[in-house]
């Protein structure tokens, strides 16, 4: 078996109420050093992790949302967000922060892809390892 596997990090919980979103992000950052084929999935309440303009001073907690924007620097380029999860919560792509990565020519590309539920199921099915938080 080759040493490169397809890793999917599945995020289904809103941020701040629990530590899962933050500690999931920490795994993604550490995992980047292992040069695997990494994707991130945001569905159900997990879509709230990518909402822009999160302001956490009022709850006395460090805002880690800016770290998502740096994912491109860690070579994490595939971020899938489920369309139905957004719609069920009255959200759209415009509510999400912008996350980009550079290609070899230093040209910027959007890392976030909005996918429907059927496509999300296919993405999940195509993985070797699924880490859920």
């Amino acid at each position: 078996m080759s040493d490169t596997k397809r890793f999917l990090y599945v995020n289904r919980k809103a941020p701040h109420g629990t530590i899962y979103a933050l500690e999931s992000l920490e795994v993604v950052l550490i995992g980047a050093a292992f040069e695997q084929d990494v994707s991130l999935a945001f569905l159900d309440d997990g879509v709230f992790q990518l909402i822009k303009k999160q302001a956490t001073t009022g709850i006395g907690v460090k805002n880690f949302a800016p770290v998502y924007r740096a994912l491109g620097d860690y070579d994490v380029k595939k971020i899938f967000v489920e369309r139905e999860s957004l719609e069920e919560r009255g959200l759209s792509e415009d509510d999400l922060m912008e996350i980009v990565h550079e290609d070899d020519e230093e040209e910027e590309h959007n890392s976030i892809e909005i996918v429907d539920r059927a496509r999300m199921a296919e993405i999940m099915a195509a993985q070797d390892v699924i880490l859920s938080f």
Binding site: F34, D128, V129, I130, S132
Partner: peptide
């Protein structure tokens, strides 16, 4: 140890089972 041990588990093991 570090989180790298979790990633290594995913790479080396045939199956990864998460309980939470």
């Amino acid at each position: 140890s570090g989180l790298g041990q979790l990633i290594e588990s995913g790479i080396q093991a045939d199956r990864l089972v998460v309980f939470g």
